[in-house]
């Protein structure tokens, strides 16, 4: 197990290098530059600025320097916010994004798994049909529609939760529901499908033949196999919750990392774009690793020796 873990982590190194190189190249190939904004700046100042950020050096040299700084945990300086480093921006924004994704994840798992299990256990009944109908709606409604609707109901009508902004945990509820619903819908469908595959299998019949109560048959014998598809979906889903929070953070005016990412791309804020891309990539790789490890724990037939 430890050997497997070490091997997997080592395998991440070349992947990470490719991601760094590719994103560096893409960012630099984009037309324009950090200082080509509407304001005219004199060539003198421009040269000084470029020297400050090292943009006057040849590209390969800049890349080597970027990687060297990266290894020391330094993501560079933002060109848009000259007084702040990329590390600082991520340090303030990412916790908000992370807690938003956490709320969305808990919500989506709670609702999605419940709906999926009910749908499978009560297959082809009113319960099943309503759960799957709800899931279809959940997948189809975009967050920029769902978000304002939730605000309308819970903030303006019921006055239960703040409509936007950042303060305490209550500010995370509506954004979390908005972000999580689409994943809840996917998880519901995956859970139902996984459970249905298991439900008719021979070993469930064996469990019943042993005289286990239906509750025990479901919790002990069905869930493990039935939820495996959900587990493998969770890795990419969590990564996509982090990146997909952009829209929701805009709607609810949350100081997360998402809006910075969009602005940075528009402003050609090279180091900030790179920093956030690498952060997202890191989480995607991490989540996939966690899912693989979890898979090994859940399915004894997979041997991580």
């Amino acid at each position: 197990m430890t050997g497997y873990l070490v091997r997997r982590v080592l395998e991440l190194v070349p992947t990470a290098l490719v991601i760094i190189a590719a994103s560096f190249a893409l960012v630099r190939l984009a037309p324009g530059s950090p200082f080509s904004s509407e304001k005219e700046i004199s060539p003198e100042i421009r040269r000084q600025l470029e020297a400050k950020y090292g943009f006057d050096r040849p590209l390969p040299e800049q890349f080597v320097r970027y990687v060297r700084n990266l290894l020391q945990g330094d993501l560079g300086l933002s060109t848009k916010y000259p007084q702040r480093s990329v590390n600082e921006i991520i340090a303030t924004g990412f916790p908000v994004t992370l807690s938003l994704a956490a709320v969305a994840l808990v919500w989506s798992l709670l609702v999605g798994m419940t709906a999926g299990i009910i749908g499978a256990v009560r297959q082809n009944t009113v319960w099943d049909h309503s759960a799957m109908m709800a899931a279809l709606v959940g997948i189809s409604v975009p967050s920029f529609v769902l978000g304002p609707l939730l605000v309308l109901l819970f903030s303006l009508r019921l006055q239960m939760l703040p409509p936007a902004g950042w303060g305490d945990w209550r500010h995370l509820i509506l954004p979390g529901l908005t972000l999580g619903t689409i994943y809840a819908a996917s998880i519901a469908r995956l859970t139902r499908g996984g459970m249905l595959e298991v439900i008719r299998s021979d070993y469930i019949r064996t469990a019943r033949a042993k005289g286990l109560a239906e509750r025990l048959v479901i919790t002990r014998h069905m869930l493990r196999g039935g939820l495996l598809p959900v587990v493998s979906y969770l890795g990419p889903a969590i990564a996509s919750m982090l990146t997909g929070s952009v829209v929701v953070e805009k709607i609810f005016n949350l100081p997360g990392i998402g809006p910075y990412f969009v602005d940075a791309a528009f402003n050609r804020d090279y180091f900030l774009v790179m920093g956030i891309v690498l952060l997202y990539a890191f989480f995607l790789l991490l989540m996939n690793l966690v899912v693989d490890l979890l898979y090994g724990l859940l399915d004894p037939r997979i041997d991580h020796a």
Binding site: D202, A209, G211, H221, R224
Partner: peptide, 21 residues
């Protein structure tokens, strides 16, 4: 009664046993 006073064994023991337990 099932599994207690009335028991059953099945044709294919690979699929009849739970692979996860």
């Amino acid at each position: 009664l099932r599994g207690n006073r009335l028991a059953m064994i099945f044709q294919d023991p690979l699929t009849a046993l739970n692979p996860y337990l």
